[in-house]
Amino acid sequence: MIKVDHLSKSFGKVKAVDHISFEVMEQENLILLGTSGSGKTTTLRMINRLIEPTGGKVFINGENILDQSPEVLRRGIGYVLQNNGLFPHYTVAANIAIVPQLLKWDKKRINHRVSELLEKLRMDKTFLNVYPDELSGGQQQRVGLARALVADPPVLLMDEPFGALDNVTRSKIHAEFKALDELKRKTIIMVTHDVQEAFELGDRICLMDKGKIIQNGTPTELLFNPANSFVKDFLKEQRLLLEFKAIRLNDIWRYLAPQTPKQGSVDLHGDASFWSAIESFKFVNTEHLHIKHHQKDEYRSAGFEELMAAFYQYKKHQPHE
């Protein structure tokens, strides 16, 4: 879907991005992770041509992005910034409608789409005619997201989209983010310096340092198969939490007790993270979770202790532990 090929950018003598290459599959969520100054933003901004590269190429759906006019390219790519960049002189509705206006949609279609999105983002209709400065940080970020999604672009670029939010609001938005059906269809590149966030939201993570990609892999690969000591050190803090977030229920499938499908409803699917399973004990009023494999017609059931036991079983079998 997106192919980045030996992309470089220098600002004078500073090599902000240094010959990096990676690919993002359709509907994949790739995280660019790294400390500040590692070149994440610069990489992201070269994909929608806010910055022109000094070397290398970017392809979207096999087409070189330099072959389109930047305006047309950008209208097909959603962009979410850390400081949301909402127009203070536009209402929420007008802010969300910017790209459809540029694409010359008719009024009815715009209104319909704006209301639909607002509903999906669990914001009341009354917000439509409100100005951004009257919204909370979380609400502003939701509107920023709606604005990026409104024309249903296949690609979404997000630069620290939740970076300015407090922890409580952020974890709430994380949950919504994962639940939003619109986002499941998108190919997303998201920049963050927050390891926990990367592990919670990313299908794959590019760990960057000094303009280079140090490792590109799934969260479990990074955890259990680190390319070097830099990666290992980077993930050192709150490692257990990261493991909880990285491991899917499918990964520990064979350590869980089988269950017959007729009994009770399904609480979770196999592609949910171990972390979300543990968390769901707070919400589901039960001793045992009922889990369905995300592809096969198989079922498992587990209480908190069985889950923890399965988790340690799994870890014992990992190479680097």
Binding site: N48, L50, P70, E71, V72, L73, R74, R75, I77, Y79, L81, Q82, N83, N84, G85, L86, F87, P88, I98, V99, L102, R147
Partner: peptide
């Protein structure tokens, strides 16, 4: 003018005049 607002405007595909 807030740089983030300007950046958002450009990133959404507005022309210079817009």
């Amino acid at each position: 003018v807030d740089a983030a607002v300007k950046e958002a405007a450009i990133a959404m595909g507005m022309s210079k005049w817009q």
